[in-house]
């Protein structure tokens, strides 16, 4: 057992364990924890695959960003009904069966493909006669190929296995050294345009997410019923309450249609069916802070 195998065993097992536990756990926060475990172990796998930069990115973006955001979202949405959100047994069984069969399928596929031969085909562009060799003979050749070529690779800064930061950066700004089929190093086209697109995309997503999740008024707590999904129902109730309260006072009942209209327009504008005008005098505790 080499060091690599040992580390792979550790990381792969924790990755799989985390993933399976995510699927099995019902508590959403525990799911987040297991997701964390899985993602962090996957970052370890990335290290093993000589992708240091990506591993760091995985830790920073996935773990430090995405998972935190998820947990954050869990906390923000935790105020709903406390009814259990667990699936029915049948669903679980079907899903488990499907997942198992999918794993079997994928593993079977992985095992049945001669990757070395495919790699040779991809490298040389033709089906080589050596492809018929047994698999284990080609094993060393497979493991030695590295994203940045070899230790003496002329790729920028590739002094050590896993030092892909420079290569990635160069590829991002448009210089991508690559080996052609004659085994010569040529300068391929980089990823400058996708890089720019992804940057703009990120910005747009940020703005869009901020827009989508911008603060809106929440429903009064008295309205938190399962069927309170239609906004039209809500302002009808509002106006009905107004009318009933105004019937005692003729002057108020005179003025109530105006306020009714006002509240309707407010509701239509705000879109959530909660109007400060109508509900302030009735339900002072409506603005529940999240």
């Amino acid at each position: 057992m080499t060091v690599l195998q040992f580390l792979f065993a550790v990381f792969a097992s924790t990755t799989c364990l985390g993933a399976v536990m995510v699927a099995l756990t019902q508590n959403i926060v525990r799911m987040a924890f297991w997701l964390m475990v899985s993602v962090a172990s996957a970052a370890g796998l990335f290290f093993l695959l000589h992708a240091d930069f990506l591993a760091a990115a995985q830790l920073l973006v996935y773990l430090g960003g995405t998972v935190v955001i998820l947990v954050f979202g869990v906390m923000l949405t935790a105020g709903g009904r406390t009814r259990s959100l667990s699936p029915t047994g049948g669903e679980t069984i079907v899903a488990a069966a499907l997942a198992l069969s999918l794993i079997m399928l994928l593993l079977f596929t992985v095992g049945s493909v001669d990757w070395e031969r495919l790699n040779t085909i991809a490298k040389t562009g033709q089906v080589s006669p050596t492809a018929a060799q047994p698999k284990n003979e080609a094993e060393p050749q497979l493991t030695e190929s590295s994203p940045t070529g070899d230790e003496n690779s002329p790729v920028l800064g590739a002094g050590r296995k896993g030092d892909t930061g420079h290569a990635l950066g160069s590829a991002m700004i448009g210089f991508r050294p690559q080996w052609n089929r004659e085994n010569q190093l040529v300068l391929g086209t980089g990823y400058l345009l996708p890089f720019e697109i992804i940057s703009v995309h990120l910005l747009v997503v940020l703005i869009g997410a901020a827009y989508l999740a911008r603060a809106k008024r929440q429903l009064p707590s008295s309205r938190r019923s399962p069927d309170a999904t239609s906004t039209s129902l809500l302002w009808d109730q509002d106006s009905a309450q107004l009318d009933s309260s105004g019937s005692a006072n003729p002057a108020l009942s005179q003025s109530s249609p105006v306020r009714d209209d006002l509240s309707r327009s407010q509701n239509l504008v705000s879109g959530t069916g909660f109007s400060m005008f109508t509900s302030d005098p009735q339900s002072p505790n409506s603005g529940e802070v999240s």
Binding site: P87, E91, V94, A95, L98, A99, S101, L102, L105, T109
Partner: peptide, 16 residues
């Protein structure tokens, strides 16, 4: 969820 389930099923069947 049902959609995902059906899609997965379809993929598996296709592979088979």
């Amino acid at each position: 969820r049902q959609y995902v389930l059906l899609a997965t099923m379809a993929v598996i069947v296709l592979f088979l």
